[in-house]
Design a protein around this nucleic acid. Structure first.
Lengths: 275, 275
DNA sequence: CGATCTGTTGAAACAATTCAAATCTGGTGG
DNA sequence: CCACCAGATTTGAATTGTTTCAACAGATCG
């Protein structure tokens, strides 16, 4: 038995719908998180990039921090793409404990074909304020059919997400608290770096220790003590919602982190596309 | 830190290739595990069923128990379909510990488009003697394009597998040993039942306690003691590789098992197909 | 300014691992 | 058929890792 999940997010009253232009330049920048990520896997022509940019234009919604985008048991809805902010998938147990099972970072998409399932078997909630683009099935089909390289890239993206889910299983099953947190931090640094959100060795890190506890399957108290150990070992600096990893190779070694599962290495996919 | 994984399977010298007829009638029966499973989601015409049956005919391979079908780091190969026996995905850590991250039961397929990734980020190994059909990309494409209902069913299958992976994350993160094992047993009973491998309240259960430990992320000793608790509570009878669950509802309650994530409920998908 | 989170600390209780040894099992060869 | 072996299961005792509970300090926010 473990502690109860602490803050149960309230349901998003209504993520205010609004069009892209109202949001100012940052959305254009944000959509490119997806472009940047896909470029880790495949080259993209300007046409490909424009098409990706365009889907971030359609129906943009904003959600405050700590609200549900969709809840377990609801009918599945449209796909969406995170433009900015952090969100997560999570599941709540009858006894109140909750487990965060995945993060959505900028450039992340929900499953391409959730609509095949009728009901959500988990909830999706924000961790920070989030903007996301909602994609109709039609818009998505158009993209997948008209831009084969993009379609390939998005399927790659799905496979990587599945690989991440497997790795979380390994992480929870086989690593102790210290290795476990170190491993998660490595993964986040790699993922944030692939979308250009790491500068030098620093990135924003908005998670509270309580949320971290819900990810790591441990108590918040133990998260606290473990973070102190990591700080004591000089592996991380974590203050004011900013994470610094001064020696990533050491953090990787400490957590037996092997980035292969992120499939971020591009060699072998060249076909000289960039028109 | 935990105990080392015990038996590291040797690599399959060569899964002997042979054609279906050589295997006798049981393969025909086995392919229908997939048909049976898909019927939980969508009706299938006789043509659909024949097409599915045919893919189990092409290249059938047999593997002894405890051998690797493919190892982490190898180039990805063809898709395959399990015809009989139990296999698993697993990952080995540098320190020797291993985590089983998924089971392959009869009727289970590996990811439809692993080929997009270049290298395996995990290994696949058998737990019992296994027969599987290897599918070329061409054969698969033909199936997906020629039989839309089958294509839909297979995409449903993938989504369910992803949902299972999420549920394993929850299981490892939030449930204690007793609930955790109980939950896994519930899942296996549901999955085996969906392919017709549960009779009354009994099914074959070939896992050793050591393998169970590699699934549950706990020591074999603790698995042993926890199984005894479950037996003591009258929730399971486990002997001679046979599992009996006399009161499934009680086992479900004990593990907070909610089968929704298996998406086995068919209502809402009727279209009266069966010609 | 109080109210409410988040982070931190200590001590006691509990869950799970480790190590070691004993028993049981199925399969093998003599 | 029995003896033997390797692997799987079971048991006990000591140790470690993690949780729980409770209290307090620091932020943050109306």
């Amino acid at each position: 038995m473990r502690r109860l999940a602490s803050h149960l997010p309230r349901l998003a009253g209504a993520g205010l719908s609004c069009r892209n232009r109202e949001l100012g330049g940052d959305v254009a920048m944000m959509t490119s998180a997806l472009v940047r990520k896909l470029l880790n896997f495949t080259p993209l022509s300007q046409g490909d990039r424009d098409a990706l940019q365009k889907i971030g234009d359609e129906r943009v919604r904003r959600f405050p921090a700590h609200t549900d985008v969709i809840q377990e048991g609801e009918a599945t809805r449209n796909m969406f793409l995170v433009l900015s902010g952090w969100a997560c998938r999570y599941k709540q147990l009858e006894n109140g404990r909750r487990q965060i099972v995945a993060f959505f970072l900028p450039g992340d998409l929900c499953d391409l074909d959730v609509l095949i399932l009728r009901k959500m078997d988990h909830s999706i909630g924000t961790l920070t304020p989030v903007t996301m683009a909602e994609l109709s099935q039609a818009a998505l089909d158009e993209l997948l059919l008209g831009y084969p390289r993009v379609a390939l890239g998005l399927r790659w993206e799905s496979l990587v997400n599945i690989a991440i889910q497997r790795e979380w299983t390994v992480n929870l099953g086989q690593r102790n608290a210290y290795e476990r947190i170190a491993h998660l931090l490595c993964e986040l640094v790699f993922r944030l770096r692939s979308i250009g959100l790491v500068h030098e060795d620093r990135c924003e890190f908005p998670l509270t220790q309580i949320e971290l506890a819900d990810v790591m399957g441990m108590s918040a108290v133990h998260v606290n003590r473990t973070l102190q150990e990591l700080r004591g070992a000089g592996l991380i600096i974590l203050r004011d919602r900013m994470l610094t990893v001064p020696r990533l190779p050491d953090l990787m070694a400490a957590s037996m982190f092997n980035p292969a599962y992120l499939h971020l290495d591009r060699e072998g996919h060249e076909r000289g596309v960039s028109e």
